[in-house]
Amino acid sequence: MLINDIVKKIFFKNESKDTAKKRLQFALVYDRLEVSDEALKKMQNEIVAVISRYFVIDQDQMKLNITRHDDLSALMFNTPIISSKPRQRMA
């Protein structure tokens, strides 16, 4: 090992391969989610079915998204609520 490398190890703990590893792990989470369009669609339908038991929602306006931030991925489900369902119809 060269003196250079030793100095680098002491002062810059973050080696480039660590960055590569983190970026990969994050990218793969996203890739693996993204793969199954069909599953997303199915999940959306199931979520809609559950919410519709409690609220009247505008199905054309709702959105299901996977977003990524620096250190996490999030599933975002947005829907305008038109009204709540009458009490007696609640499950």
Partner: peptide, 16 residues
């Protein structure tokens, strides 16, 4: 290069 930290080790690859 693995020893220097410039290349992912096989263990890193397996972890990922």
């Amino acid at each position: 290069r693995v020893e220097r930290g410039d290349m992912l080790s096989h263990q890193d690859v397996v972890d990922v």
